[in-house]
Design a binder for these strands. Sequence first.
DNA 1: GCCGTTTTCGGCCCGACTGTTTTCAGTCG
Length: 577
Amino acid sequence: MARANDEVEALLREYADLLALTGGEAFKQRAYEKAARAIAGHRDDIAGLGVTELRAIPGVGKSIAEKIAEYLTSGRVAAIEEVRARIPAGVRALTEIPTLGPKKAAVLYHDLGISSVDELVDAIQSERLRDLKGFGPKTEENILHGVELLRASGGRMLLDVATELAEHVVARLSALPGCVRCTYAGSLRRFRETVGDLDILVASDDPEPIMAAFRELDLVAEVIASGPKKTSIRTAKGFQIDLRVVPPDSWGAALQYFTGSQAHNVRIREMAVRAKLKLSEYGLFDAETGELIVSKTEEEVYARLGLPWIPPPLREDRGEVDAALRGELPELVGEQDLRGDLHTHTDLTDGVASLEEMLEAAAARGYAYYAVTDHAPNLVMQRMTDEKMLAQRERVRALDRAYRGMRVLHGTELNIDPDGGVDWPPEFLAGFDVCVASVHSAFTQSRADTTRRLVRACENPHVHILGHLTGRQIGHRPPIDADFDEVFRACARTGTALEVNSFADRLDARDEHILRARRYGVKFAIDSDAHSVRNLAQIRYGVGTAQRGWLTPDEVINTWPLTRLRAFLKKPSAREA
DNA sequence: GCCGTTTTCGGCCCGACTGTTTTCAGTCG
């Protein structure tokens, strides 16, 4: 079950979409969208709140507060049910098709009674759109193409795929003679966990050769649109890449604008309007005279609005603007703050590199300490035994003496069984320097059972880190269902760190969990979960996720000196025992 | 529908590109 906030967000978004389809006032629609964002980003659970408390949330007024309260008490909203009765869900689904928005969807429904993607395809094939005003042959073609794309992919890239693709394109464009600056912006720069399309930004006085070179890149399967300022292409795998070319003097304003998020930019632009300014991708202007004030750097743009520079991972309209105004932006943890990695594997279980190779690569990264945490025996396919684990410990101790500057810790990744127990008895567990414990089975237990299971794992005096909290695999496996607030309270109470797992298809705990957990005083471990030498570097995605969760170095145990870390790894419950 | 160091009324972020039209609406980000 989703949090009440998430349910209400979905409900308000649906209502906004339905308003658009009924041709209602655009501003009313926007008000519902804004309220949906406000509820989704609200730090407290809204379950049980009344109209008065709801109205205290910015963007929520009398009418929306009453609808939310109605939903929270009765599970339904009369006004929304009424619109639902008039507009079939399939009509809303039509707007998922790229190039087909609410206006066209409404025409299709009213004039032809089309209320599903399949019916739309049929109608086009039987030429029933030919007499519709505003629907020419090109529109038909675009719709069919859009449907194909929708069915083919689902379409979002994982962070590692997106990063590699973006870095490739940036490298190619940066090499062009007329390219003054080039970088990627958009949700990738904000480290969103998946990326819908890439936004590449170039500063140049001579756009056309840049556009031409971009259209000619090997990876381009299709040019969607191309003009003097913007070109959009699609790769063979179906990913869209947008290139914007701006004058070098507009770099800062453009980078700010194209980094988003949209919600963040709306906040910033509203501030500009109040200050009698106008902010666009070309700069910050005097609203009356049209005179350019600043545009060269992001810092200047923010500064002229009375704000410090805001790190991109924070730009989600989740309170960062208010925090910036109060001078209370967090000093975010960075990759350079990490002194070690506390969850890694070797070829003793399912890793692909030897212990020695992993240590070599870890030392090359400059780590002060490094934990080897191969799988425990209950994950039967890994064929772990007590003997193998103890033999590895001997090798780890020997190698630890051999390395200068990097201490090697011996650990394991335990399996949290359906009751919350783990693989080995306490006396064996006591021999490890660090234990990560994770769910690898029984993903579909009830919410109550899963909650109890995770809380029990935290209460184990030998469990130091709760690994990949929800077990989700983006695009493949849904998260387990638990009362995570209860779990976070248990983490804080027992001194169990919450892992931020850096695998691009995990990113678990995710940003929203981190934001909630840190309010309880939970500590975190940003881990690579590396199964290969190459995997060690993916910790950058975990760091990005931690930044989206507003984490500071002090909240992350693997930024700490080893002495402080070792003290944390002696849990209070273990000291009593 | 929301909101207020100009406002309880009258605003609400802004620009690029496409397609179908002869000056602009729709979609997207």
